[in-house]
């Protein structure tokens, strides 16, 4: 079993090498590995096995997400209070600019609720993407130190954003009530809408995690991409109104209508705002919402899994 490349020390090593004659002696390394069921190091597990491993780490994912939430604000004097303050301040700033200064509320009843829902729902997707980009590249220490299915990290980061969203939602509901909306059964529709959006976000975060692990320039690029997406998602204005007023090329029309962020935002608006009726929704909205969740969720997972063995390398 000894390898001796240096002849001067050869005697010492060979002496220890083969006192035991074993039936394994004649085997090639590959055959020896085969015989004892050894596997190639760092090989990617099969898809079913990978899903099983990931399910086995569900407690890790949950605990990791909540630990991160707690750690997020430990440096701030006000601590956890920022979880509520951040969305509130965001809403105030956007209202000041778009509602008061620019006056883009034309034709939208209950603009405050309209705007706040748009911002909070978009922020959920936005922060999932941003967290996804850094999920692998920002945790190389953990990845190199311990072995676990890497998809745990992007999933945990999305879960963390979901936790933040739920707090924002509570803030949002209070504001929506203040703007004069009355609770109705339709409010329950936010549950399926947010579930679908969460699946969509997980898939997106997984995809971005793989891209971000390879392309370090992505972190610099992301803010611009996300801002473009924000402006195209009808957060401050009504996409419907724009589509009706302007004669846009059909492809732009289609893109605006299929834009997943806009779809999820409009679903929540539809659920919470009474004056936001069915006619404001794009056609086949639930089908599109489910479609995006499936495409992003499954696609993102497969895309991430395909490079599982490469995370942490280099």
């Amino acid at each position: 079993m000894s390898t001796v490349s240096d002849t001067t020390h050869g005697d010492a090593a060979t002496a220890a090498a083969s006192p035991v004659t074993s039936p394994d002696d004649g085997l090639s390394p590959a055959a020896l590995a085969e015989k004892y069921g050894l596997s190639v190091s760092g090989a990617r597990p099969g898809l079913a096995e990978y899903v099983r491993q990931l399910w086995g780490r569900r407690h890790f994912i949950r605990a990791y997400a909540s630990a991160r939430v707690t750690a997020q604000y430990t440096n701030a004097r006000l601590g956890q209070l920022w979880q509520v303050m951040t969305p509130l301040l965001n809403a105030a700033v956007y209202f000041l600019i778009f509602g008061v200064l620019l006056g883009s509320k034309r034709g939208i009843e209950n603009y405050v609720a309209y705007l706040i829902i748009g911002i909070f729902i978009f922020t959920f997707t936005q922060s999932s993407v941003l967290a996804g980009v850094k999920a692998i590249s920002g945790n190389l220490g953990l990845i190199r130190a311990l072995h676990f299915p890497r998809a745990s990290l992007p999933v945990a980061f999305t879960l963390m954003q979901l936790q933040q969203l739920l707090i924002s939602m509570a803030v949002m509901l209070v504001i929506v009530l203040f703007t004069g909306e009355v609770p109705a059964w339709s409010w329950l529709l936010i549950v399926p809408a947010l579930l679908l959006q969460s699946v969509f976000n997980v898939g997106l975060a997984l995809g971005m995690a793989r891209l971000g692990s390879k392309m370090t320039d992505l972190t610099q690029l992301m803010p611009f991409i996300l801002r473009t997406w924000l402006y195209a998602s009808g957060v401050f204005y009504s996409i419907r109104a724009v589509l009706e007023k302007h004669d846009l090329p059909w492809i732009v029309h289609l893109l605006l209508e299929l834009n997943p962020a806009a779809v999820y935002i409009d679903l929540v608006r539809f659920a919470l705002i009474d004056s936001f009726g069915r006619n404001e929704l794009p056609p086949h909205v639930w089908a599109v919402a489910v479609g995006w969740a499936l495409v992003a969720g499954i696609g993102g997972f497969l895309f991430f899994w395909k490079a599982e063995e490469s995370y942490g390398r280099g």
């Binding site: 590959a30 020896l32 596997s39 760092g42 630990a67 220490g141 190199r144 130190a145 311990l146």
Partner: peptide
């Protein structure tokens, strides 16, 4: 190639966990 039994664990000098 390297063949291993299960997944080897490596403890490095600066393998920071969650700082």
């Amino acid at each position: 190639k390297v063949y291993t039994d299960g997944q080897p664990s490596l403890l490095g000098v600066n393998a920071a966990l969650m700082n």
